[in-house]
Design a protein around this nucleic acid. Structure first.
Length: 216
DNA sequence: ATGACGATTTACT
DNA sequence: GTAAATCGTCATA
């Protein structure tokens, strides 16, 4: 298998915790087609440095908790290896990799990237209106920030991540990072999910400055 | 039809 | 530290 090919379907046909760990160090790629010249294309990309696992029916924090199946979350019920993009807080998008098999609605939220390609254009996407200087370390440090930088919205919901098209994930490292390079914590923004609030389901690369800032 | 609520970010006291 | 921004989505009726 080519080192720079998209991760295959089999990569996603595993449990969400395993995939959340294995996605660290892989590259999220977004191909932007220019409106005037569809043949002209820009590659935006970054290394995935932070993820969270969402475990489906039993998971109080998951959109598919208790078997909820709605127009919004339908792609979570489909096959692994597709993008689940949702809109929240009236202004933000977030992107997940759907994992496992059809009818097992589990996913991995992509929370932060280390930008590698198309950084200038990412700054443009992130600097709307009055916003000025931005540090590169906060360019994609957060699930909504990275979606703004890569111009990911609901039109990309359901995109097949194994196809070299508008949005996919490239194999960048052959194996999961060694355990001592992965920090595990509770998930962010899950205040009232009973025992699911504290479960260790957030993963990030040790000492990486592009991870979501946490105020502790 | 209505109301409550976000898998967040940013700005401000 | 706290609060505002801002609206699609979903449960209830």
């Amino acid at each position: 298998m080519d080192k720079l090919s998209p991760l295959p379907r089999s990569f996603y046909h595993r449990d969400p915790v395993t995939v959340a760990r294995a996605l660290l160090g892989q590259t999220l790629v977004r191909i932007i087609e220019h409106k005037r010249q569809p043949t002209r294309v820009t590659r935006l990309a970054g290394i995935i440095v932070e993820t969270e696992a969402y475990l489906g029916l039993p998971d109080r924090a998951a959109h598919t908790y208790n078997g909820r199946r709605t127009p919004r979350n339908q792609t979570m019920w489909g096959d692994g290896g597709h993008a689940y993009v949702y809109f929240t807080y009236g202004m933000h998008h977030c992107v997940n990799a759907v994992v496992s098999q059809p009818d097992d609605p589990v996913a991995v939220l992509i929370r932060a990237l280390q930008p590698t390609e198309g950084i200038d254009l990412m700054f443009q996407h992130r600097n709307t209106g009055k916003n000025r200087a931005q540090k590169q370390t906060q360019l994609c440090a957060g699930p909504a920030r990275l979606c703004q930088a890569l111009q990911i919205d609901r039109t990309l919901d359901g995109t097949d991540l194994t196809q070299t098209h508008t949005l996919y994930i490239e194999r960048t490292r052959p194996r999961t990072l060694p355990k001592n390079q992965i920090i595990v914590t509770p998930r962010i923004g899950i205040p009232n999910a009973a025992d699911w609030t504290a479960k260790p389901l957030r993963f990030y690369i040790r000492n990486n400055p592009h991870v979501t800032p946490t105020h502790a």
